[in-house]
Structure formats: C-alpha cells, structure tokens
Amino acid sequence: MQPIVDWLLLGSFYAAVALGFSLVWGIMNIINLAHGVFIITGAYIAYQVATNLHLSPFLALFFSMGMLFALGWIIQYGIINRVIRGPLLVTFLLTFGLELLLTDTLQNLFTSDNRFINSTIEGAGINLGSAHISLVRFISAAIAIVLTAALAAFLSRTRLGNAILATGMDRDAARLMGIDIRQIYALTFAISAALAGAAGALLGQMQAFYPTRGELFTLRSFAIVVLGGLGTPWAVVAGGMVFAFIETFLPVVLPRVGVGYENAVAFAVFVIVLLVRPTGLFGKAFYSQ
C-alpha cells in the first residue's frame, strides 16, 4: 500500500517538474537545459520568502512563480528569440549556457550547502490503512494536478492559449494571422519558467536542494516527456506516473540499483523508450487541443 501511495504522489509531483519543459519543447521546439536550474531557483525563492517573511511555503510558491515568470520572459524576449531560427544545436547550446550562468549565480548567492524549506505542516499526515500520507506531499501532488488542469484549460479555452497552440503548429501561418510571435514565445517561456518555479517551491519542502541539483531535474524532465509524449499537458502526468513507477519499484526488483543511480536510471529509461517508441508511450507529435 505504502509504495503505491508514494508512487502516485511522486508521479504527480513529477508532472509539475516536467510540465513547463514539455510546453517549451512542444511549442518552440527548444530543449531548455536550464529548466532544472529554474526549478532550483524557484526552490531558493520560496525558501527566502518562507524564511524571511514567515509565510507558508505554499504561499511562497506564488512568489517563485511570479519571479520566474519575469525571468523567463526576459530570457526568451531578450536572448532566445535572437537565435530561435538557428540550428537546433545553437538553442541547445544557449540554454546550456544559461544553465551554467544561473547555477553559478545561485552558488555565489547561496553557497552550495544543502537547503530545505521547513513547512509548518511538516510531519502532519493522514493514515490510510497501512499507508501514511504526508500532508506536504499530498498538497504538493494536488497543486501539481491543479497546475496541469489550469495549463490545459488555458491552452484550449482562452484566446491567448489558442494563439500559443497556433504558433506551435505553424509559426508562419500564425504570423500571417496577426499573432506577434515574439510576444507569444516570450509568454510561453515565461509560463514554463513559472511552472518550474512552482515545482521548485514544492520540491524544497520534500527534499534537500543545492545549486547543482538542477541537472538531474532536466534529465528527469526529458525522460518524463519522452515517456508521455508531447501531446497535451495530461501526457506529462502520464509520463510522470510511469517514471515515478520505475523509480519507486525498480529498487524493489533490483535492490542494488537503488540509491545513487538516479541519473543512470533516468537516462536508461529515456534511451530505451526512444528506441522502442520514438513518439512516447502515449504521445502525439505536437501540442494540440
């Protein structure tokens, strides 16, 4: 029972981790290697706000989202838009540069010590039969699902969301329809960064974090999106669930490949999936309504 609960909660959290990554990939065909460090930045912001303003970490989440939204907007509008028509390698390289820069900045600001956001409801939880559900994890999972639903609704129900989807499907056609591509791209990236910020605020309450922790989350995001496919926001939840399933139950099956091999596991998962089913387990090729 406990492993199943752990799996579902972790899977939902992973949806929040990869949601923004999947959006940017699907709409702009950019692999944002800075995605992981966006998450970590979100964690630090939530940490600072929660500690200094004595707010609940779940309220601090909104600060993380807001600040990362702004950061994302600036990065896309000021930097990535200038290279977006270049070869894939250039955008890939560029986001890696951003990753290095942000990681180093975090290191200078906060040192490389482990941090953890102490929640006021730390330790609280419900017992469900033999399983214990931590309240922090439960609320985090709920927030992750709410964010997914909100993104899905925003994309399909609002004019702006539709403009994002249209741009993702055919940039030139969207431009002819009078959509300002640069603004739409900036908005897309900003939303993605804000989602990463939210994931960071949740992460900080569940695990210790430090500046270079981001790389692992980028790799995991990639594996999750590859598993779920680039179809819709809900595909990310599916991918997150599958990935969390592997992470939760692999140590049960192969006790020696437990702790310490997180990266290798993430890597192995996505290479195998890519080779067996290049469009992901559930996915369609592009974001769509």
Binding site: W25, L88, F92, F222, N263, L275
Partner: peptide, 24 residues
C-alpha cells in the same frame, strides 16, 4: 542505437551518457 535518433534526442542521449557513466 543513438545515432538513429535525430536532433534534440541525440543531443540529450549523449549528454545523458556522460552523466550516467560518471555516476557509475
């Protein structure tokens, strides 16, 4: 196997290789 992958997929597969080998 990985050179069958294109673009981003190959890039991240190779990036992942180095991270995984380091870990091992």
């Amino acid at each position: 196997p990985t050179l069958r992958l294109k673009g981003h997929y190959f890039a991240i597969a190779t990036l992942g290789t180095s991270v995984a080998v380091e870990e091992i």
